[in-house]
Amino acid sequence: TSSHKLRLYERDDYRGLMSELTDDCACVPELFRLPEIYSLHVLEGCWVLYEMPNYRGRQYLLRPGDYRRYHDWGGADAKVGSLRRVTDL
C-alpha cells in the first residue's frame, strides 16, 4: 500500500498553526478549525485538493513538494474545502 502525508499551514511560508493529514478529509475547515490554508507541504503520495467541502468545486492535483503560497498549487484563493488521496494514477 502507498502512504500519504501532507501538512497544512494557516499562513504562507509554513507559518502559523500546522496540521498533518494522512487520510481523506471531506471538510478541512471543520476538522482543523482553519477557515483558510495558505501553504502546504506534501511529504508522501499525491493528493487532490478541492476548493469546497465534500470533494466539490475546483480540483488541484498536488504532487510531493512545497506549496509556499496558494497560487503555487494554482488556487485563486486560500480556500481548501476537502482533500482526497490519489490511490490510482
Rank of each mutant, 00 (worst) to 15 (best):
R69C: 15
I37Y: 11
G81A: 04
R58C: 09
D77W: 05
D24M: 01
V48I: 15
G74Q: 11
I37S: 12
D77C: 15
G57W: 00
D24L: 03
S2W: 09
S39G: 02
M18Y: 13
L43Y: 09
T22E: 14
Y14M: 06
R84G: 04
N54Q: 09
K5M: 11
D13Q: 11
G74W: 03
R11D: 09
G16T: 04
P53C: 07
S3T: 11
D77A: 10
D66F: 06
R85Q: 00
Y14H: 05
P35Q: 11
V28T: 02
Y70P: 15
T1Y: 13
R68T: 07
V80R: 01
V48K: 08
I37H: 15
L61G: 13
D66K: 15
Y9G: 01
V80H: 00
M18K: 09
E30V: 08
S82A: 02
D13A: 07
Y67G: 02
Y70S: 08
D77V: 11
D24V: 03
K79Y: 07
G57Y: 06
A26Y: 09
P29D: 13
Y14R: 06
M52T: 04
D13C: 14
L83I: 14
D23S: 09
P64N: 00
R56L: 06
A78R: 11
C27F: 03
D72I: 03
L43K: 04
P29G: 12
C25I: 00
Q59W: 10
L89G: 13
E10A: 09
C46G: 00
S19G: 14
D77F: 03
L8N: 01
D13T: 08
G81V: 00
R56P: 01
F32W: 08
F32A: 14
C25D: 13
L17G: 11
S2A: 08
P64I: 00
Y38W: 13
L83V: 09
D66H: 15
L17Y: 13
V48G: 03
S19H: 12
S3E: 09
E10K: 00
R56K: 15
E10R: 08
Y9C: 00
F32R: 08
F32H: 09
A78E: 05
A78L: 04
G65M: 00
K79G: 06
R7Y: 07
E51W: 02
A78F: 08
L61V: 11
E36P: 05
L31N: 13
A76I: 14
Y55L: 01
Y38D: 02
L83D: 03
E30T: 09
V42Q: 03
D23V: 09
Y9M: 00
Y70W: 10
T1V: 09
R69E: 04
E36M: 14
S19A: 13
Y67N: 01
R33V: 10
L61R: 13
A76E: 14
E20A: 06
C46M: 13
L6K: 02
Y14D: 06
G57A: 03
C25P: 00
R63S: 13
E20P: 12
K5C: 10
S19E: 13
G16F: 08
Y67L: 05
R84P: 05
S2T: 08
D13S: 11
P35A: 15
S82F: 04
E44G: 12
T1P: 00
Y70G: 05
R85L: 03
L34A: 15
G57P: 08
R33P: 13
K79F: 15
H4E: 04
K5R: 10
I37G: 12
R69D: 15
T1A: 08
S2D: 11
S82N: 04
S3A: 09
D66I: 14
L6D: 01
S39C: 05
G45H: 04
D88L: 05
D88C: 04
L21N: 02
D77S: 10
W73R: 06
E20G: 01
G57N: 00
Y50K: 01
G45Q: 03
H4Y: 14
L61C: 10
D77Q: 10
V48T: 12
Y60I: 08
D77G: 09
S3P: 08
W47V: 01
G74P: 04
L89T: 15
L21G: 06
V48S: 08
V42D: 02
R11G: 11
V86S: 11
I37V: 10
G45A: 04
V80M: 05
P53H: 08
R11C: 09
G45V: 03
P35M: 08
R15N: 12
D23G: 10
D12F: 14
K5V: 08
G75P: 00
V86G: 03
R15V: 07
V28P: 06
S19M: 12
Y9I: 03
R84L: 05
R68L: 10
L49V: 06
V28I: 09
H4D: 02
D72V: 07
D66L: 10
D88K: 15
P35W: 09
L89D: 15
T87Q: 13
V28A: 05
P35H: 07
N54K: 08
P35S: 13
Y60T: 10
L61P: 12
T87K: 07
L6M: 08
W73D: 06
P35R: 13
R56M: 12
Y67E: 03
W73I: 08
E30N: 10
R63T: 11
R85S: 06
L34G: 13
G45E: 02
R7Q: 06
R63N: 10
R56C: 07
E10P: 06
V42R: 00
P35C: 10
V80T: 00
L17W: 13
V48C: 11
L89S: 15
W73S: 05
C46K: 14
I37D: 15
E20K: 00
D77L: 08
V42L: 03
L21Y: 03
K79V: 09
R7H: 09
Y70F: 08
Y38A: 15
E30R: 10
A76Y: 12
L6H: 06
L49S: 01
P35F: 06
Y50W: 03
R15G: 13
Y70A: 08
L31F: 08
A76F: 06
D77I: 07
V80P: 02
V42A: 01
E51L: 01
D88V: 03
V28M: 07
L61M: 14
G81L: 00
L8V: 09
H41K: 13
R63L: 09
G74V: 03
Y50M: 01
L34K: 15
G81E: 04
T1M: 14
S2P: 05
Y14F: 11
R11W: 06
D12V: 12
E51D: 06
D12I: 13
D66W: 08
P35L: 07
N54R: 07
P64G: 14
D13R: 08
C25V: 11
K79D: 03
D23W: 08
L61S: 12
R7M: 07
R69I: 10
S39R: 03
A76T: 13
D77E: 12
A76N: 12
E51Y: 08
K79E: 05
S82L: 06
W73C: 05
G74R: 05
G57S: 03
G45Y: 03
W47K: 07
D12A: 11
P64C: 02
H71Y: 09
A26M: 09
D13L: 08
P35G: 12
L34P: 08
L40Y: 00
C27D: 15
R33M: 14
S19L: 14
I37W: 13
T87N: 15
W47C: 00
C46P: 14
R15A: 14
R85F: 00
D72T: 07
W47F: 00
S3I: 10
L6S: 02
C46V: 05
M18P: 01
C25M: 07
R68S: 07
S19I: 15
L21I: 12
R69L: 07
T22K: 14
